[in-house]
Nucleic acid binder design. Structure first.
Length: 250
DNA sequence: GTGCCATGTGAAA
DNA sequence: TTCACCTGGCACC
């Protein structure tokens, strides 16, 4: 493939890879590794704004800040706005992978690694879900939604979860992330909760609580709450997700 | 048109 | 804990 950095920030590495063979591309959590001959990898992390767009050739003149352009005979790919786009060695790639927890999209992932962290920790489960060394690939939308789907308050300490609750959470992440890959969007509503269109649930409402602060919960009608944790917004329903499950009396 | 916010991370303080 | 990165969507004027 031709490898180019129209914007310039990846130019030196692009020159090294230009006219070599692109052999593979794999992802773990939020990290993408594009492998070139000679066991060289381009490590890409899209971060908040990054976008990798693939189209058929011929490629038009790059518009705006294109960090990396890969051009093959039939298709080209433009990368813009990424947090990371670096040429790395196999050892560097392994070091990045070693920092990641199990990825629910990986059939070989061992969820017990995550469970052993969660069950020993007093940290809030909402924080642990965002910790890529515990769960690789989960972000703010999936965090909010999977906790809602399991009626878990985001600030509940990891160690307060029972193993059954953790297993259900993991299995749901496996389902939700695969569904996300399949559809290209994050849709987390169960069919029975798909709302009628209204001011509180405009067309395109795809989630229970994520970014629905102040709007009525789709299940119970209580107002969705938000609070910052480690610089990111938590969203939850105060009625469906109490901090402590009220025990059945008697 | 303007300003704010965001599917994220890591360096600096 | 704060900020920088650096792009796009959308609410609001």
């Amino acid at each position: 493939v031709r490898v180019d950095s129209p914007q310039g920030r990846f130019a030196e590495s692009a020159a090294l890879l230009d006219r070599t063979r692109l052999e593979d591309a794999t992802s773990s959590g939020k990290h993408l590794f594009v492998e070139f001959e000679g066991t060289r990898f381009v490590h890409v992390h899209l971060g908040l704004y990054g976008k990798f767009v693939v189209n058929r050739t011929p490629a038009p003149a790059p518009v705006g800040q294109v960090r990396l352009r890969l051009t093959g005979s039939a298709a080209y790919a433009d990368l813009r706005g990424a947090t990371a786009c670096d040429l790395v060695t196999d050892a560097e790639r392994t070091a990045i992978l070693d920092r990641l927890g199990p990825d629910p999209l990986d059939p070989a992932a061992d969820p017990d690694r995550a469970w052993q962290r969660v069950r020993r920790s007093r940290s809030p489960i909402g924080g642990m879900l965002m910790d890529q060394s515990v769960f690789a690939g989960v972000g703010n939308v999936y965090r909010a939604e999977v906790l809602f789907r399991h009626r878990l308050h985001p600030l509940r300490p990891g160690q307060s979860l029972r193993v059954g609750q953790f297993r259900a959470l993991w299995e749901d992440l496996v389902v939700l992330l695969h569904e996300g890959v399949r559809t290209g969007r994050i849709e987390t509503l169960r069919p029975e909760h798909t709302p009628e269109q209204s001011p509180a649930t405009p067309a395109g409402t795809r989630n229970y609580v994520y970014r629905r602060t102040g709007l009525p919960c789709l299940v119970c009608g209580a107002k969705v709450r938000t609070e910052e944790l480690a610089g990111r917004n938590l969203f939850w329903c105060p009625r469906c997700q109490p901090v402590f499950r009220s025990r059945a009396v008697r």
